[in-house]
Amino acid sequence: MPEATRNVTSQVSDELEEGIPVMQHILDNPFILLFLGVVVPTVLYVIWGVMEIIGIPIAK
């Protein structure tokens, strides 16, 4: 691609970056979403559930 076109694309993209709300930054970052999407159910469902099962007294 010609250098000039590349610079224009880059400039448009940089201008877009400015003034983007925080929430959109979060939604635009798939790795933050991946982190949240793994941590939330892991804590609420898996870790909490496993801790409850471990806490069950063993029958004598």
Partner: peptide, 17 residues
């Protein structure tokens, strides 16, 4: 440029799950 299209965002959701 900017955000991914909505359909791609739905696919990101599927991939994260």
């Amino acid at each position: 440029i900017g955000s991914v299209p909505l359909v791609t965002f739905g696919a990101i959701t599927a991939a994260i799950i």
